[in-house]
């Protein structure tokens, strides 16, 4: 009896160890291949110039168009999603809390739309563009990515706002706050680092997604001069470069992947650091 328990335990322990290390190994392999191939092709030129004519056949130039394009698109979309998402999340947690069924329903719907693949958002954005007569452009891409990250933004802020203890609401109400003061002065302050984490999470999802910008942002070798012009993005630039038959261009695809990975890594490290700070200043009882 005791012996079999011991064998069982060591069996599962070995299983967990194997699972953990194989996952880590796969992750390490992915990172290694991106870094190894990416660094080889990385240069100042790649980072600071736009593609010259014949870039995709191995001529000179870089991916500045895609770097700036992705950054501006993701910044714009994150900003929009934040401006829409924060009031929604606050509304759910301050004004609607009484109506438990409604809140449950809203959360369920948001979780559903969170799960919709981004290509569907891309297709939706595209059909809207046709309806409104808009070309592929920075504007159309930004709006589509906004829609795509909105549920992520709202639900992750919602989850953090839910952690505000009811005693804090009671304290604020008893001082004579109304609901909007409670929402914008108390809830946002109490959860500020969680809100920033939600913003960074949404930014990371937005900047890394290819399918939602495929039909909507278009692609260009130049930097757009207005919101109505097409814009290049890193995921699509990786795709186009990998599709090239020239090995040197394929290597530059890895350089682009490296840039994208580093941006996302930076963002998540940043939000990790915030998370730590958040726990330090949290009130403990």
């Amino acid at each position: 009896m005791k012996r079999s328990k011991k064998i069982e335990e060591s069996f599962f322990k070995v299983l967990m160890v194997i699972a953990t290390y194989s996952i880590l190994a796969v992750l390490a392999l992915i990172m290694y291949s991106i870094f190894a191939k990416g660094i080889k092709a990385m240069s100042w030129e790649v980072l600071t110039t736009v593609p010259s004519g014949g870039y995709y056949y191995g001529k000179g130039g870089g991916i500045l168009n895609a770097i700036l394009g992705s950054l501006s698109l993701a910044f714009g979309a994150t900003l929009l999603a934040f401006l829409i998402g924060l009031p929604v999340a606050l509304y759910i947690n301050v004004f609607l809390v009484r109506y438990k069924n409604a809140v449950r329903m809203i959360r369920f719907i948001l979780d559903l739309v969170w799960g919709i693949p981004s290509i569907v958002y891309g297709a939706f954005g595209f059909s809207m563009m046709i309806l409104l007569g808009i070309q592929t452009s920075l504007l159309a891409g930004t709006i589509t990515v906004t829609l795509f990250i909105l549920p992520i933004m709202i639900r992750s802020m919602d989850e953090i706002l839910r952690t505000v203890p009811i005693g804090l609401s009671e304290a604020a109400y008893s001082l004579g706050s109304n609901k909007s003061e409670l929402a914008f002065k108390i809830f946002t302050r109490q959860t500020i680092s969680g809100i920033i984490t939600a913003i960074l999470l949404s930014f990371g999802r937005g900047i890394g997604d290819a399918a939602s910008v495929l039909f909507t942002a278009g692609y260009t070798d130049n930097l757009p001069n207005s919101l109505m012009e097409p814009v290049a993005t890193l995921p699509l630039s990786i795709f186009f470069q990998l599709s090239s038959p020239v090995p040197a261009v394929q290597d530059r695809a890895y350089a682009s992947a490296l840039v994208l990975t580093l941006i996302i890594l930076l963002v998540s490290l940043f939000s990790r650091g915030l998370g730590k700070r958040y726990h330090k200043t949290k009130i403990n009882f």
Binding site: G167, L168, E170, A171, A172, Y173, S174, G176
Partner: peptide
Amino acid sequence: IVTLRQYMGLLMQRPYPLPM
């Protein structure tokens, strides 16, 4: 109720300082 609550100062069983 917002004004009525200001007639009353509340001290709760556990302190909840405002996040400021």
